[in-house]
Computed example of a mutant assay.
Amino acid sequence: MDLFGNSDNWAIKLEPILTKYKGNKHPLDYHNLYQLLVMVLLSAQDSDAHINKIAPALFEAYPNMESLAVSNGDALFHQISSVRNFSTKANWLLEIAQTIQKDKNIPLTMDGLVALKGIGRKSANVIMREAKVPAEGIIADLHVIRVAPRIGLITETKDGIKAEKQLMQVLPREIWGEIGMAISFLGREICRPRPKCEECPINGVCEYFNTVFKKEPI
């Protein structure tokens, strides 16, 4: 899969985007770990922008895990009814809150997070990255799933788990915590479905840029 047909270090190749995006806050506009957990769960198959829009009213009604734990489905439905799959997500949130009870009990390990209803590896990786705890995987959101194969990092797949597994095999552990979000930001800003290749800081090592874009008629 390596563009140059050898074992060139992907960590070095991707350094420009690691430098550009390292430490950038996730686009979800959360203000604490509780809000992050709730918003990450709600954003699945929905947009970050939409979740940001409904968040202020939601967190005014439910400022912490304790307040959410004593709510019920009907009340929570009213707050998140515009969210995709809101009824299922409401039930997941209530179960999480009733299990965790307090914000301080939110787990920050992969095993602890994926044990919660509605939290898969992608969501867990986002939460752990934003909480600045050691990474146990790599964020593989829809942007990463699109961009990583285009660069030449992994083979094409629609499956986030498979994409993450491939990324973990080719990237050194010391960059796991930041590289997924860096690729995601690249996908949001530059490597969009219609990519702006000439603006890309890693176009020199990108398989698509070197094998497709350069051959397209001007």
Rank of each mutant, 00 (worst) to 15 (best):
Ser87Lys: 14
Glu60Thr: 13
Ala131Glu: 03
Cys206Phe: 01
Pro27Asp: 08
Ile145Ser: 00
Cys191Gln: 05
Lys158His: 12
Lys22Met: 09
Lys20Arg: 15
Val38Trp: 01
Val40Ala: 01
Ile202Met: 12
Leu108Cys: 08
Arg194Gln: 14
Gln166Thr: 09
Gln79Asp: 12
Glu178Met: 02
Ile183Ala: 06
Val212Gly: 10
Ala97Val: 10
His143Tyr: 10
Ala57Pro: 00
Ile127Gly: 06
Cys200Asp: 06
Leu42Asp: 03
Glu189Ser: 03
Ile100Cys: 00
Glu156Asp: 14
Asp46Val: 10
Lys89Trp: 00
Arg150Ser: 13
His31Phe: 11
Leu171Thr: 07
His50Val: 02
Arg192Tyr: 08
Glu164Asn: 03
Arg188Gly: 02
Leu68Ser: 03
Ala90Trp: 06
Lys104Trp: 00
Ala44Leu: 09
Val133His: 03
Gln98Phe: 02
Leu93Phe: 00
Pro107Lys: 05
Thr88Lys: 12
Ser123His: 02
Pro134Leu: 02
His143Asp: 10
Ile218Trp: 05
Thr155Ser: 14
Lys214Glu: 11
Arg150Leu: 15
Val114Pro: 04
Asp2Gly: 12
Arg188Asp: 01
Thr157Cys: 12
Val114Tyr: 06
Phe4Gln: 12
Glu178Trp: 02
Trp176Glu: 13
Arg146Met: 11
Lys53Leu: 14
Ile154Lys: 09
Gly120Glu: 02
Ala55Gly: 05
Asp103Met: 04
Pro56Asn: 09
Asp141Met: 05
Arg150Asp: 10
Lys132Arg: 13
Thr211Asp: 09
Thr155Cys: 08
Ala115Glu: 07
Pro134Val: 01
Tyr62Phe: 15
Leu93His: 00
Pro193Tyr: 05
Leu167Trp: 11
Leu153His: 11
Leu116Ser: 05
Pro195Lys: 10
Pro149Ile: 12
Asp74Ser: 15
Val205Ala: 13
Ile96Gln: 07
Cys191Thr: 02
Gln79Pro: 01
Leu113Arg: 07
Gly112Arg: 02
Val40Tyr: 04
Asn9Pro: 05
Ile54Pro: 00
Met39Glu: 04
Glu15Pro: 07
Lys196Ile: 14
Lys22Ser: 13
Lys158Phe: 09
Thr109Val: 03
Ile127Arg: 07
Val133Thr: 06
Val83Gln: 00
Leu142Glu: 12
Gly177Tyr: 06
Val133Asn: 05
Gly5Gln: 10
Pro107Asp: 08
Tyr30Phe: 15
Pro201Ala: 01
Ala124Ile: 07
Glu174Cys: 02
Gly120Gln: 01
Pro56Leu: 12
Leu42Cys: 07
Gly204Met: 08
Pro201Asn: 04
Val126His: 02
Thr19Ala: 14
Val126Leu: 05
Lys117Asp: 00
Lys89Thr: 00
Gly118Asn: 09
Val170Asn: 13
Ile179Gln: 06
